[in-house]
Design a protein around this nucleic acid. Structure first.
Lengths: 232, 232
DNA sequence: TCAATAGTGTCTTTTAGACATTATATG
DNA sequence: CATATAATGTCTAAAAGACACTATTGA
C-alpha cells in the first residue's frame, strides 16, 4: 500500500449514488440529466469526484445534494461496490465507489446546478437507457442489493416516513420485489419478528376511500430480522 | 464524474485482500509481515497499489502472489468493500478496495519478495494485533461476509478441494461459524438443497483412524441455496 | 471386540402459505 | 346497503432440530 514505484498511478476517485424510493407503489430510481449539450447524451446516476478532505460517504451525500437538490442527512446510505475497470470512463481512469441510498418518497427532487433530475420507475427504465458510463451495470446491482436486504434486514422501514401502517410496509415489499403478498401472512410475520416494528398505542390512520383504520407503527431496534422475510 | 475542478484530487488506489482458509479445522487468515525494519511494526493484509492498466481484481490477485507467493488464479475472489477515510493511511490519502478470497488450505504460503507470510487462526488473531492501517476494521467485515454468505450461497465448497465428503463440508461450516453442527441434519439439508453438491457415484474416501468410508461429492451448479443453510 | 465416522429413521417444534372470517371505515 | 382495507383464525405443508439407530471401517 505504500509502494509508490513505477507502473502505479493515482486515479480519479468518484462516488455514484443509486438512490431508490417507492413512488406510486413502484420502485423508482433517481437519475440526473447529463450536463453536456449533446442531444442524445445519456442520463446518469448522480456522481461527483471525491474531494481531498472528504470521506466517501460525505461525497455521496454531496453528489445527491448538488445534482438533485435533495438533502439526505438522515437517509439510509450504504456502500454498494466499487467499479474500477481501466476503460470504464472514456476520459481517463476513474475508480467509482457506488452507494445505495433508500429514502421515503420525497415527492419532488428540486434540481440545483442547472440540470434536471427525476425519479424513474425501475420498470420504465428502458426509456432512459443506455445510462452514462457503466451505470447500467451499477443499477441492477443496487436493485438486487435492496431486494436481498429486505429479506434479512429491517431496511424496508427506510422507505416510509414514521409513523407508518403495516399496509405501507407491505406496499414497500411489493414494490421492491415486484410481487404481491398476502396481507394476513405478511402482518403475522412482521409482528412476530422481534423488534422489527413497534406499535404506537392507540393511534390509527384512516384511508381516503374507506376501510378499517390501520394501527400505526414506528421502526423497531432490530437491524437483522429473525426469522427472515424471504421472497416468495 | 468528469468534474475535475478545484478541491478534487486524485488519490492513490490500493487493493487489500482478506484471504481466508480452513486450516486444522479453524478459520484462518493470511497475514504478511511488514516490510519496514521497525521491530514492533504491524502485520497486515496483503495489499498493493493498483497499476495503470490493471483491473482491481487483477491487482488483488497480484498482491497475494507477490506478497505471499501464492498463485490463486481459480480461487473465489469477490469485492468486499472500499475503505477511504481521508486519514486512514498516515502517508497520504489512499483509497483501498478490499477483496475477500476463499481458498482450500494451501498447506503453506511460500513468501516471495523477501517477506514472510503466514496463516493465523481467527481465534489467535490477538497475537498479531493491532494490524497495520485500518486492517483491523477490514478483517471483521471479511469474516462476517464469509459467515453470512455460507448461509445463502454455495460458497462453502470453495474452502475444500474436489472431490470432498460431506464431513469435509460440515467442518468448513463449523470452522467458519465457530459452532458445532448435527451431522445428520446437516447431511439432510445439504443433499436436499437443489444442486448444492453432486455425488460421485461409487467413490468413497476412508479416514485414517477408521470409520465408515464417506461418499465423495463435487460442487453443484447452484450459486444461491434454496432453502438457505441458516446459522444455529 | 471397541472406537470412530458415515448415514438413516423418527418425532417435535417452528415457520410458511392458502384462505375463510370478522372489524371498521367511506359512499 | 356495497365496497374497501385492516386484522384475526384455522388448516396444511415445509423446514429445522433433537436424538435414537444402523453401517462400515481401523485398531
Amino acid at each position: 500500500m505504500t509502494a509508490g514505484i513505477a507502473d502505479v498511478s493515482t486515479c480519479a476517485v468518484a462516488v455514484d449514488v443509486a438512490l431508490l424510493t417507492v413512488r406510486d407503489e413502484r420502485l423508482s430510481i433517481l437519475l440526473v440529466e447529463p450536463d453536456t449539450p449533446d442531444l442524445d447524451a445519456a442520463w446518469a446516476l448522480p456522481g461527483r469526484r471525491v474531494r481531498d478532505d472528504e470521506s466517501l460517504i460525505d461525497g455521496a451525500r454531496r453528489a445527491v445534494r448538488e445534482l438533485a437538490g435533495l438533502a439526505i442527512p438522515h437517509a439510509w446510505l450504504e456502500q454498494l461496490a466499487t467499479y474500477g475497470e481501466p476503460q470504464r470512463d472514456p476520459h481517463g481512469r476513474v475508480v467509482s465507489v457506488a452507494y445505495l441510498a433508500l429514502v421515503p418518497d420525497p415527492e419532488d427532487p428540486a434540481p440545483g446546478d442547472g440540470r434536471s433530475a427525476a425519479f424513474v420507475a425501475f420498470e420504465d427504465l428502458a426509456d432512459h437507457q443506455p445510462l452514462a458510463y457503466d451505470h447500467d451495470r451499477i443499477l441492477p446491482d443496487a436493485v438486487e442489493r435492496a431486494r436481498s436486504k429486505l429479506e434479512y434486514t429491517a431496511l424496508a422501514t427506510q422507505f416510509v416516513e414514521e409513523p407508518f401502517t403495516l399496509g405501507d410496509l407491505r406496499r414497500v415489499y411489493e414494490a421492491v420485489w415486484g410481487e404481491s403478498l398476502d396481507g394476513a401472512n405478511f402482518r403475522r410475520k412482521v409482528v412476530s419478528t422481534t423488534d422489527f416494528v413497534l406499535p404506537v398505542d392507540g393511534e390509527f390512520r384512516k384511508r381516503p376511500g374507506g376501510g378499517r383504520p390501520a394501527q400505526l407503527y414506528r421502526r423497531g431496534t432490530a437491524e437483522r430480522l429473525h426469522p427472515a422475510m424471504l421472497r416468495p
